[in-house]
Every structure is written in structure tokens, then in C-alpha cells.
Write a protein that binds this DNA or RNA. Structure first.
Lengths: 347, 347
DNA sequence: CTGAAAGCGCTAACAC
DNA sequence: GTGTTAGCGCTTTCAG
């Protein structure tokens, strides 16, 4: 910038003014203005955002720390967030925290410290207490999304997992299913809440769910195979499966077909999240749609709202909706007859 | 930092030295050292990476500009890149360039200018000439990955799309297929190269491929439905489909089953990329495996290598390998008999 | 071994 | 209208 000033024969501050203020604020002679602009052009001047940020200017950047970019759900979340942020004139910068804890910390340090005007936390970071503590001291607003349960000190935007599970389970039992198993993941964040919601749901009915009906698997497409085999080995196997995520749901379809079952004729499967792939599985997956766009809007709004009293943190809980596709149907006939007593016989 | 210095009763430069140099470089009294460390701890001092970078220190950050995070292929690429970078002590910062061109530019400006020690470009950015021009002036090394054809001024790491297509097509014709169609995407980057490779392949044989055998669809799971319908309407429909990506491949399986076809009995389908769920589709997708890990290693190496002569840019081309799964089989019997003359009858 | 001082590139008072 | 001056938080000569 000093070069530009010299080339245009003006002071550096003048250059700064001309390059930053909107043209309408005409506090500069048109002649000087043009001279400076020309010089800047000729010298291919590019502002150094570092210096600018150091001086206190907003960076127009929102940082997002993501647990696992590989998870298709987060991929769509990021996409939605980026669009929303762009609508506010902000760009999204992502930090991928998967690898090691210290890396996550390093990332946070970078994103923080006024490099970003706000920070978004996507997923459950309870296993990264250092990160959380670190962020709690942060000068910029932090909003946590899909972190599972409440998390103190941050704004948060979550989905009502309980309502989603209830809708899905209502759908299944409306179809006539009584023996509905749950396949979850590492018991983190939303997945944990979904498992609890599943347990509660049946706690309110006279249907008793054997412990073996809650299975865990790694949240990958090939993860739930063994869980399904275990389930099928039960004396009275389930006629429907509630998967904690669509990834698990899609994996269960694959595993079921591999075992010679027909979906949904022999086994109904419901997912959660409504990732793009869910519409394209064979058969297409019935699932609980995550209101990603609304959640993004809420998160960005919270992130960009001037930080008032740090003790007053807002929590926004949005409601998901069931999307019925082709992976669910009434249970096979023999089970339909047997199911009513079966549920009670376990009491 | 000034606070720490004051609290410890030393000069700021001393604090800087102690906090940055490795302990082995004992150019400081043990007593002072401890005093400073204690003060830093007590005051919860955290270095400001901005100021540090402004002063010229490396940021230990690699920036990646991604065309579309939503594309599952890039998701795994990012993951691999992050791991590789972590192995070198670097973190990965992602910019999502999907939305608008000016946003991509803003991002580049941010990532650049010594905020990052290197920049990675994932995907084809030929439609963003401003970005490219901008990056060409960049002070930090830039390496382009999966950009399709050569791109001047940057290091690049690509895959041999031609070899991949050839392997896949050899597999299909080895199975007895003669009527093999291609379903591609927006003719960008790798997808474009794959289409060309497909055309070349049949150019070298006596099999003539009707123009209608090259179809385009948006690179989404639900995208290729219409393309498949068009293909099936041909007087002599294909018995096998070469999809330009796994997303398209999975979408084609879905569409085919929706149309009442059996895969692979009625129709064989091959994908490209080997994204995680290619192993979990029903049936599992035969595909061309992208050597993502090797490509990441190459890219990071190039990115971190001291920038020598800017005119000497390196290009690394890795070779993909075919993964045979369950979506391919010999063509239906009637086609098997008809296929040989069919290929020639079009000549 | 440690302190003082300069300066990275930029913005914001405050003059003139 | 435009120039001068002082830092933002840090690293790095250069003295002591």
C-alpha cells in the first residue's frame, strides 16, 4: 500500500480511505481518487487481510469446526451454511477436526483470535474438552450445532431428536410393526439423543423391547452389517429397524439384501437426517428430514448478532419432519398376526 | 504478551523467545524461564496468530478451495488431505467456493496473502478465471488437484482418467458387453476427460457407438434418471453403463431398479471414484478406485516443497485401479448372442 | 543472557 | 481534502 501511495503521490492514509470507503462517501477529490485507483491497479495491489484484521476490522469470515467432513450429513450442512453465510456477505472457512485433539486445538486458535467473526461448532465435541474450554474464552460468538445435549457457554441450534424418533416410530407402529429395533452409533451427540428417545418411546407403551434390540455400529455404510446379523439371530427378530442416521439406514438396506431379505417386504427400515443419498437407495429410504436450511439460518443469525451479555445464551430447537419413501411397509403376514401377543409376552 | 512480560518482570522479547524456541535452545536462565511460563499460564496467554503471520512466520495452515463439499468424492479427498497435512504438522482450512464467483475470490484473498503456507485447488475451476488469475500471482505455492486437463502456472496432481476408463471398459467387454453407454456430467474436469476417454476407447475398436450413447446428467444421485430413460428408449438399448462418477453410478442403479430392471442381470453398471458408499449400494458398485491417499501425499509434498523456480511446475499423474463388485455381470443371453453383429451392424 | 527498538501492512484519530 | 502519527501483537536485529 505504501507503494501505491508513493506511485500516486499521496499519503498512505488517503489510499486506505479511497480503497475502503464506498464511493458515495466523497471525502476525496475525484482526481486524487482516480490517480490512486489507477496506481493500485497498475501495481496490482492487494490488501493484506491479516494486517486489516490485526487492526480490528471484521474479517467477514465465519469459521466452522467440523467433526467429520466425511459424514454426508455434515457435507450438506456445510453447504447450507455456506449459502446462508454468503447471503450475509460472509464466507465460510472450515476446520476439519477429525484427526487428533491437538490439531483441533490448533485450528481453533487459528480460527479464533479475530481471524473469524464467529465460530460454528458442528457435531458433538464433548470428547474434546480442551477445545471447548478454549472456545469458551473466545472473544467471538460461538454457536454449537448438532452437539446433542445442551452445552454451556455457547449459543446452540439443535433439532428435536425426540420428536423425529417419535414420528418415525409412530409411522412404523401405524404400519403394524411391534418388533422395532434400533441401530445407533457411538452414542455421541444427536445419535445418543435418538437412542434415548427410542427407549422412552417404548417406555410409554406396553411393548417391552428386549435389550438386544438396541444395537450399536460405527456410523459408516458398511458399519451396521454385524449389528443386523445379531438382531436377526434373536428368537423373535424385529420386523422393522430404526436407524440413528441415514448412513446407517442405507448400510442396513445393503446388509439386509446381502442376507437375502427383501426390503421392505421382510424388513422395514427408517433412517434419520434425509441426506441426498437417502432418496437414491434401493429402495428409497423413509427417513426423518433435518431442517438444515432453517438451522443454518438460525445459526448464522446467532453467530452474527452482536454479542450481548455473555451469560445469556440462546438455544434454538427446530422440528424435523418424516419423509415417507419406499423402505417401509407393513410387516410380513405371519408377524402381523403374531406381533400383538409377542410384544406383551415379554412383559 | 505485554501483560505477561510485565507480570514476569521481563521484556516482551524475552517472553517471545521463551514461548517460541524449543526448550533445548537454552539461551535463557532457568529461573526466568519458569517465571515467564508461570505468568503466561496464569494470565491464560494465547498468541495471536494474526500478528505472528503478519511478522512473517509460517502459519502451519494449508488452504483448500473446494468446488463442492457436497460431492461425496471431495469429502473423502478432504479427509485424506487433512490427515496427510496433519502428518506434516499442518492443519487444513477449507474454503467452499460453490455459491458465487466473487465469493470464491474473496476466499482466495483470505486464504492467500500468507494466511496459508500453501493453497490446494480441488476440482475444476476453469469457470472461475478470476480466481485462477488471482491465484497465479499468489506468493504461496498452489497445487491443483482433479482439475481435469493441465492448468498452467500451478503444480498439479491428477489421476489417469483414460487408464481408469480403459480398465472399466475392458472389464465390461471382457464380460461380453458390446453395447456400452456413457453417462457423464457437466463436462468439467475429470468428468470431461472420462467422456473423452470413453470415445477414444471405442474409436480404437470396430464397435461404433451411436451418439445417443453419450448422455449427460447433473452429478447428483437423482440426476441420471432421465438419461437412463432416454438410453432405454434406443432401438438397441445398452446392456452396460459406464458412469462418470460413483454418484451417477449409484443414481443409475436406483433409476434402473425403479424402471423394473435388475442390476446386473439386465444391466451392468460401473462407476468411477470408489467413494465409501459405492461398497454399500444394492448391488455394490463395481468402480474405478481413485488413489486418494497417494494423491494427497503428492499434493501436500508439492505444496510444502520450497518454491523453486516459478516456471518449473510439476505434474503428477497417478493411476487408478478397477474394483470389481456386484453391479457388473455378463449381458442377458439374448443380447449376448445378438451383440456381436449388433456392434458391427452400425459400422 | 536479556532489554530496547524497529517494523510487518493497515486503519483511525487528529491535525493542517 | 489530505497528510501525520500512533498503534494492533508479535518477532527480530542490535546493544548491553
Amino acid at each position: 500500500m505504501a507503494d501505491v501511495a508513493r506511485a500516486a503521490g499521496v499519503a498512505q492514509s488517503t489510499v486506505s480511505r479511497i480503497l475502503n470507503r464506498a464511493p458515495e462517501a466523497i471525502l476525496v477529490t475525484e482526481a486524487t481518487r482516480e490517480r490512486v485507483l489507477a496506481a493500485a491497479q497498475r501495481l496490482d495491489y492487494r490488501p493484506n487481510p491479516l494486517a486489516r484484521a490485526l487492526r480490528g476490522a471484521p474479517t467477514m469470515l465465519i469459521g466452522a469446526i467440523v467433526r467429520d467432513v466425511t459424514d454426508p450429513f455434515f457435507a450438506v450442512a456445510i453447504d447450507a451454511l455456506a449459502s446462508t453465510a454468503a447471503g450475509h456477505g460472509y464466507s465460510l472457512v472450515l476446520g476439519h477436526a477429525r484427526s487428533r485433539a491437538d490439531e483441533a486445538l490448533a485450528l481453533a486458535a487459528v480460527l479464533e483470535a479475530r481471524q473469524c467473526d464467529a465460530i460454528l461448532l458442528l457435531g458433538d465435541f464433548r470428547e474434546e474438552p480442551m477445545l471447548i474450554d478454549d472456545l469458551r474464552q473466545s472473544q467471538v460468538p460461538v454457536v454449537a450445532m448438532w452437539h446433542g445435549s445442551r452445552i454451556k457457554g455457547f449459543h446452540s441450534v439443535t433439532v428435536d431428536n425426540s420428536a423425529g424418533i417419535r414420528d418415525a416410530l409412530d409411522h412404523l407402529s401405524g404400519l403394524g410393526h411391534r418388533r422395532i429395533a434400533f441401530v445407533g452409533g457411538e452414542s455421541l451427540g444427536d445419535i445418543r439423543e435418538r437412542e434415548e428417545a427410542y427407549r422412552e418411546y417404548f417406555g410409554e407403551t406396553d411393548i417391552v423391547v428386549p435389550d438386544s434390540f438396541v444395537q450399536r455400529a460405527s456410523n459408516t455404510f458398511l458399519g451396521p452389517g454385524p449389528a443386523l446379523e445379531r438382531l436377526l439371530r434373536s428368537p423373535e427378530p424385529p420386523t422393522a429397524l430404526m436407524a440413528a442416521t441415514d448412513v446407517l439406514g442405507a448400510g442396513l438396506i445393503h446388509a439386509a439384501v446381502g442376507l437375502g431379505l427383501r426390503v421392505p417386504d421382510d424388513l422395514s427400515i427408517v433412517g434419520f437426517d434425509d441426506i441426498p443419498f437417502a432418496a437414491a437407495t434401493v429402495p428409497a429410504l423413509t427417513t426423518v428430514h433435518m431442517p438444515v436450511a432453517e438451522m443454518s439460518a438460525a445459526a448464522v443469525e446467532l453467530a452474527l448478532s452482536p454479542d450481548r451479555d455473555p451469560t445469556d445464551r440462546e438455544t434454538r430447537i427446530l422440528t424435523p419432519t418424516l419423509v415417507t419413501r419406499s423402505s417401509t411397509a407393513p410387516p410380513p403376514l405371519q408377524h402381523r398376526l403374531a406381533s400383538r401377543p409377542a410384544g406383551l409376552s415379554h412383559g
